[in-house]
Amino acid sequence: MTEESLPSEEELVQRLKSNDAALFERVVKEYHSAMFAVAYSIAGPAIADEVVQEAWISAINAIHKFEGRSALKSWLIRITANEAKTRLRKESRSVSLEAVDENWATDTRFTEKGHWAGGNPEWDISSPDDLLAADELQDCVKKHMVKLPDNQQQIINLRDVGGMDMDTICNILEITASNARVLLHRARDKMQQVVAKFQRTGEC
């Protein structure tokens, strides 16, 4: 993680506008991963790399016009999401909440009355840094992220990995705020379960 070592937003943007190639390299290394996650979830694995490449080129060409109204990362994520959308084949993107709710009634974590069936143990590994340092766990998280339904994957990548605000996300994905929140929670809940299972059993 190098986020701490990047300069403040204002200085960052100023220096990027004045041809600081060393700093640009650090920015690429810092934000590429989140941009890739967003591209992957919207445009699919086959062209995700290409989409990110195109997004960087657009950003490079537009950086002198960037006014800092959002954080640089959000700006990069938005460019990536828009690029991904234009590359996506046109298809029906309606969000089915029925599919989302289908497993709710049969969630085995809970009893019929909605109480925790076997409790919810504390995690042995709990700080975000320790969670990130556990390689096997991270592999497991990645594996399950890409298994999420498309719309959940898109929203968790835009919101939690990419750090975008919900209004912008709803505009990009063309969904309502309440649908977005349901989908986001399902995705987060699934990832919590992945981490919880790994901590409990050591298995992915």
Partner: peptide, 13 residues
């Protein structure tokens, strides 16, 4: 903790 982890994760360098 899960959300924090996702926000700091490096999924593909």
């Amino acid at each position: 903790q899960t959300i924090m982890m996702l926000s700091k994760g490096q999924f593909k360098k």
